[in-house]
């Protein structure tokens, strides 16, 4: 049973057709407790009555704007809020002013873009601490447990150092994608300097020794010449 799909959603948008469409998209994604309102006042009513778990707000409403609605909502409860915005300039407000919105999606959007973010916010907000703990994953030659910071290869346990853990984490977050050396240095040393490049190479070699069968011919942690590194994980995009 997916608990996330049980959450109550409040949709606020002045465009009834868009409201209908978003509702369709959410239902297709498995949500079924959806309330909709087209105005500021309706939305306030709905919040008081149904006590939703998350609100999806449009910035432009006929009797007010999404930002003041957000402020009102935050006075009543601490539910997460996702903005749907058609205006480019609103993006700055949402991000820059720190109004307490959890995320935003710019219209027009692909259904996937909306549902991914919605699910992510709900997971982040309502999942217990154990569930958000660091992942563990399988590589062809070993098992990596980032929560315990260890690698199990051929029944042997190799602990990861703090730097190795940081590097492996960001590679895992961007699995099957090229991560530039600059980004890796930034995440491991928090410093934008190419001077750490050689140190990074040393750490990469040590990680390979732990996760690869043949560290000199890696199959999981691949060098992308001139750019950075890539962690190959089968079946993940």
């Amino acid at each position: 049973m997916d608990l996330v799909k049980n959450r109550k959603i409040l949709l606020v948008d002045d465009e009834p057709l868009l409201l209908e469409m978003v509702e369709t998209i959410l239902r297709k994604d498995g949500f079924y407790r959806i309330a909709t309102s087209a105005t500021f006042t309706e939305a306030m009513e709905a919040i008081k009555c149904t006590m939703p778990d998350i609100a999806i707000l449009d910035v432009m409403l006929p009797d007010g704007d999404g930002f003041s609605l957000l402020r009102e909502i935050k006075k009543l409860s601490d539910i997460p809020v996702l903005f749907l915005t058609a205006r480019g300039e609103a993006e700055d407000k949402i991000v820059g002013l720190g109004l307490g919105a959890d995320d935003y999606v710019v219209k027009p959007f692909l259904p996937k873009e909306l549902t991914l973010r919605l699910n992510a916010i709900l997971k982040r907000t309502y999942s217990s601490i154990h569930q958000v703990s660091l992942p563990s994953f399988k590589l062809p030659n070993c098992d990596v447990d980032l929560a315990k910071a260890e690698v199990i290869k051929d029944g042997q346990v190799f602990p990861l150092t703090a730097k190795e853990h940081a590097i492996l984490s960001i590679l895992y977050d961007n699995a099957n994608k090229v991560v530039t050396t600059d980004m890796l240095c930034q995440s491991a040393w928090g410093n934008d300097s190419y001077g750490y490049n050689n140190t990074l190479m040393v750490h990469i070699r040590r990680i390979r020794e732990k996760i690869e069968a043949k560290p000199s011919t890696p199959i999981s942690l691949i060098t992308v010449k001139g750019l950075g590194y890539k962690l190959v994980i089968e079946g993940r995009r």
Binding site: L18, T24, I25, K107, P108, P111
Partner: peptide, 14 residues
């Protein structure tokens, strides 16, 4: 343009 485009994009993807 954004609002009608949202509808097109949303439903076509559905």
């Amino acid at each position: 343009v954004r609002t009608p485009l949202s509808m097109i994009l949303g439903y076509s993807a559905v």
